[in-house]
């Protein structure tokens, strides 16, 4: 298959995170997924990098606007990228 022209990622909106009872995380306005594992999901949101640690993690829904992570969440780590 012939590759088409690379499309840019949708414009980053302001990041909003909702955590429900440590079992679900809804991230709106997130960017690229950097790591996907059943114990860690790491993704980018603008200049911020967010790492979600836990067990039995899965992406319940993945769309343009964001993603929903389900599993047993233990840590959420924010780190800022240096320019």
């Amino acid at each position: 298959m012939k590759p088409t022209k690379k499309k840019p990622l949708p414009p980053a909106r302001s990041l909003q995170l909702y955590v429900h009872a440590g079992r679900e995380l809804i991230a709106e306005g997130c960017g690229t997924i950097l790591q996907f594992d059943d114990s860690r999901i790491r993704f980018q949101a603008g200049k911020l990098e967010i790492s979600v640690d836990g067990t039995d993690l899965a992406i319940q829904q993945l769309g343009l606007s964001g993603l929903i992570i389900r599993g047993i969440l233990t840590d959420i780590h924010f780190s800022s990228q240096k320019e």
């Binding site: 997924i33 996907f36 993690l57 319940q60 993945l62």
Partner: peptide, 28 residues
Amino acid sequence: FPERFLNACRKENVPLQRVRRLPEGLSA
């Protein structure tokens, strides 16, 4: 490269659900 696959799916606006990591890749 499952992460690349997920990002590519987002770019193409392909709705994925119940994405789980497998040793050989992922299931969705």
